[in-house]
Nucleic acid binder design. Structure first.
Length: 270
DNA sequence: AAGGACTCCAACCGCCCCACC
DNA sequence: AGGTGGGGCGGTTGGAGTCCT
């Protein structure tokens, strides 16, 4: 048996709130507060609304400390950092942004921020310069092997499901321009990668996943080599500072248009 | 100018958690 | 200890506004 609905849906008004309803709710809450019971509130306040609807309206719109309008770059970075640490726990993320609601953050993420991160590599508007060198996968450095040794992860799906995060609280996340995959380099093709002695295994047909790497003693030379191999260059490494962990989320429309050996499932690494 | 496509966001839905009885 | 119900949350939807062709 399902649980009883919180209100009689046939006898409550739904849809957009009128200015009059807003005024009634605001006035009531300013005088009496919630009384600890949102369900009973509409009756007391004289509103033909569901208690949950009143709660939502107040929390997301009428509260005096609500901040409306565009998000700042600082807020973007906070959202990115938290999202990459804890995922879509919007209320937790919103609690780090004074005046923002979980609904606001969620909408902002879904409509703008997510897209901002997924600028196709082929876009000419990309603010990151293409790497001057194609991503090298040299056997001499064997970074992929190193990562596997360090993390115990053996293949793509292991990486994907590895859920350990060491990013410290307050650590600003990677700026969006660095979240892109290396832009395609003229003359580079996946065949170049397969010709190196680091072979790639056909790890997954999935178009998205996480590549993560870590080193126990902070970012060291091997990480720098890897970052270089990925085409990020030193600035990305510098951004990581002394922290030994980061991640790149790869999604189809972020990287698929690019010739990246990490997205070419016809290749594999072992 | 029109209408189809797309974007944005307020609001709803339904599930889970937990306090209370 | 178990049931109940309110609060809180994340996912989704609907529709108004805007853009594009």
């Amino acid at each position: 048996m399902g649980r009883a609905p919180c209100c009689d849906k046939a006898n409550v008004k739904r849809g957009p709130w009128s200015p009059e309803e807003d005024a009634v709710l605001k006035s009531y809450l300013e005088k009496h507060g919630t009384g600890g019971n949102w369900i009973a509130l509409p009756l007391k306040a004289g509103l033909k609304r569901c208690g949950k609807s009143c709660r939502l309206r107040w929390l997301n719109y009428l509260r005096p400390d609500i901040k409306h309008g565009g998000f700042t770059e600082e807020e973007d970075n906070i959202i990115l950092a938290l999202y990459n640490n804890i995922g879509s726990r919007w209320s937790v993320i919103a609690s780090h942004l004074p005046g923002r609601t979980d609904n606001d953050v969620k909408n902002y993420w879904n409509t703008k921020l997510k897209k901002k991160l997924m600028v196709p590599c082929s876009s000419n508007s990309s603010s990151i310069a293409p790497p001057t060198q194609p991503p090298l996968l040299s056997s001499s450095t064997s970074s992929i092997s190193y990562i596997k040794e360090e993390t115990g992860l053996q293949n793509y799906s292991d990486f994907h499901h590895h859920d350990q995060l060491f990013m410290p609280p307050g650590f600003g996340f990677v700026p969006s321009e660095f979240m892109q995959f290396p832009a395609p380099v003229e003359g580079y093709s996946p065949a170049d990668a397969s010709s190196s002695s680091v072979t790639m295994e056909n790890s997954s047909s999935s178009s998205s996943g996480y590549f993560k790497w870590s080193s126990s003693g902070g970012v060291g030379s091997v990480d720098d080599v890897l970052l270089s191999e990925l085409g990020f260059g030193s600035s990305f490494s510098e951004f990581l500072g002394g922290y030994g962990y980061s991640e790149i989320k790869m999604e189809e429309n972020m990287g698929a248009p690019c010739h990246s050996p990490f997205l070419d499932t016809s290749l594999s690494y072992s």
